[in-house]
Design a protein around this nucleic acid. Structure first.
Length: 109
DNA sequence: TGCTTGACGATCA
DNA sequence: GTGATCGCCAAGC
């Protein structure tokens, strides 16, 4: 804990995502700095999904596609969670994604 | 120790 | 607009 893991930073950002909003791996990576890459964020989420404190379902790829839905135990778990927050998912993709997009570097500023 | 894989993103053809 | 390739860096085998 004393050491600031890259994962911890990602968790902090994801926790700050407001309900009914979503963000992308690249946005988080960009907020943390050029040192991080989208892939690292994705890998960090690999462990974040196991944490109930981290709403990993609010993190999707740049296309608003629920690429990591398979990591939620059920292939439809992620979609249901997002729909429960007022979002609309169609074909594993968030509709009006740009309208729900939450940029940490912009909103969290 | 070294190669492969991976919840991505951007660019080139 | 679609398909393919490179870059990013860490974990797994």
């Amino acid at each position: 804990m004393g050491k600031e893991d890259f994962f911890s930073n990602v968790y902090e950002i994801v926790k700050l995502i407001p309900r009914g909003r979503v963000t992308s791996y690249g946005a988080i990576a960009a907020y943390l700095g050029a040192k991080s890459s989208s892939r690292m964020v994705g890998w960090a989420m690999h462990g974040a999904a196991a944490k109930a404190d981290v709403p990993a379902h609010r993190v999707v790829n740049r296309q608003g596609l629920l690429t990591g839905k398979v990591h939620f135990g059920s292939p439809t778990r992620m979609q249901e969670l997002l729909e429960a927050e007022g979002l609309t998912i169609e074909n594993d993709q968030i509709k009006n994604f740009d309208n729900y997009f939450w940029d940490p570097a912009k909103e969290l500023l």
